[in-house]
C-alpha cells in the first residue's frame, strides 16, 4: 500500500503540493489526473524517492521511500520523458535494468518486445516517440516491482498500443502483486485503464474514488414524461446531479442505483425511458460539481 501522509512540497515560492493525504491500495490501477502544474509529476517523483517532501511522508508498504533502497526497490518510476543512455539499444537498457532491479524478468521482456515488434538491437534514439514509450513501459513492467509509477506514459500511445498495454497490466495484476499508478492530464486517457482515480488540483487532492463504485451509483437516464407535474415530482424524488430538457426529452444524471432510478421513472408513467452509458468525464463533472468545483475548467 502507498500512503501519502500530509505531504508538502514547494519549489522556491511555488507551492507544488499542499498537504496531500491519500492512500493507494494494492491490486488496483490508480489514475492520477490533473491539469498541467497540478502536482502530478511532483507527487510521483516523491513517491519514487526522486524528490524529498518538505514535510509529511510518502510510505511504500510502511517504509519512507526517500533514500531508502529497500522501499525504492518496490517502485519503478517511468518519467514523462523516458531516459535512455546515449546510443543505447533496448538490449543495453535491459542489461542495466537487470542490474538495478534484480527481479527483472528477461524472458517476459523478450516475449513482450517481440510481440510489440521492437528490435532489441536497434538504437533507441532511432525510435519514434511512441515506440520509446512502449520500450519504457515494457522495461517498467518487467522490473518486477510491486508499484509502477507512470508519469503521462500513456499520453500519445495509439489505441491499439493502449489496449495492448492495458492487457499487459491486466495480466500482471492477475499473476503477481502489481499496482500501477498512472498520471495524466486527461481523464479520457485513463478511463479505460484505471479502476481508481484521484483528482489533483493546485497541489491538493480534490477527489479519490473507485471508478466502478462511482459508475454503480451515478446514472444517466433519458425519458419522456407527458405529465409536467409528474416530471417535477421525479426531479424532486431523485438525487439529481444534472438535468436537461430538450423538447419533451428529459435527460437526468442522478445518484442512485440503476434499479432505484428506473423504478422512480416507471412510477411516473413515461412514454419512453432508457439508461445511457456515462463517460468518466461526466461522472467527474457531476461529482466535482457537487463538491463545489467547476471541473470542466480543470481537466477538459
Amino acid at each position: 500500500m502507498i500512503e501519502i501522509n500530509g505531504v508538502n512540497k514547494s519549489f522556491g515560492a511555488l507551492k507544488a503540493l499542499d498537504n496531500i493525504v491519500a492512500t493507494i491500495q494494492e491490486g488496483s490501477i490508480f489514475g492520477l489526473v490533473g491539469t498541467n502544474g497540478a502536482g502530478k509529476s511532483t507527487l510521483l517523483r516523491i513517491l519514487s524517492g526522486v524528490l524529498k517532501a518538505d514535510t509529511g511522508a510518502a510510505l511504500i508498504d510502511g517504509q519512507n521511500v526517500y533514500e531508502n533502497p529497500e522501499a525504492k526497490a518496490k517502485v519503478c518510476f517511468l518519467s514523462d520523458t523516458a531516459y535512455f543512455f546515449p546510443n543505447a539499444t533496448i538490449q543495453t537498457m535491459e542489461d542495466y535494468y537487470t542490474i538495478v532491479y534484480p527481479a527483472f524478468d528477461r524472458e517476459r521482456f523478450s516475449e513482450l518486445t517481440e510481440k510489440f515488434g521492437l528490435d532489441k538491437k536497434r538504437r533507441i534514439n532511432t525510435f519514434s516517440k511512441g515506440m520509446k514509450k512502449q520500450v519504457s513501459v515494457l522495461l517498467g513492467v518487467c522490473t518486477g516491482t510491486k508499484y509502477l509509477l507512470c508519469d503521462e506514459t500513456f499520453d500519445g500511445l495509439d489505441p491499439v498500443m493502449r489496449q495492448a498495454v492495458k492487457s499487459i497490466f491486466a495480466m500482471e495484476l492477475m499473476n503477481r502483486r502489481f499496482t500501477p499508478v498512472i498520471a495524466s492530464h486527461s481523464l479520457r486517457e485513463l478511463e479505460d485503464i484505471c479502476d481508481h482515480v484521484g483528482l489533483l488540483h493546485k497541489g491538493g487532492i480534490l477527489l479519490s474514488k473507485d471508478l466502478e463504485d462511482m459508475k454503480l451509483h451515478i446514472h444517466k437516464v433519458q425519458c419522456v414524461i407527458p405529465d409536467p407535474v409528474k416530471e417535477e415530482e421525479l426531479l424532486t424524488e431523485l438525487h439529481v446531479l444534472q438535468h436537461d430538457k430538450r423538447g419533451s426529452l428529459l435527460t437526468v444524471v442522478a445518484r442512485g442505483t440503476r434499479q432505484e432510478i428506473l423504478m422512480s421513472i416507471e412510477d411516473k408513467q413515461p412514454i419512453f425511458s432508457e439508461v445511457l452509458p456515462l463517460t468518466l468525464e461526466e461522472i467527474f463533472i457531476s461529482e466535482t460539481e457537487v463538491a463545489g468545483y467547476d471541473v470542466k475548467n480543470l481537466i477538459f
Binding site: 524517492g49 526522486v50 525504492k72 526497490a73 519503478c76 518519467s79 531516459y83 538495478v100
Partner: peptide, 14 residues
C-alpha cells in the same frame, strides 16, 4: 532533470 528522474528513482542511495 530527466537523468535525475531516472537515476534517483533507482534503488541505489545517492
Amino acid at each position: 532533470r530527466v537523468k535525475l528522474d531516472f537515476f534517483h528513482s533507482l534503488p541505489v542511495t545517492r
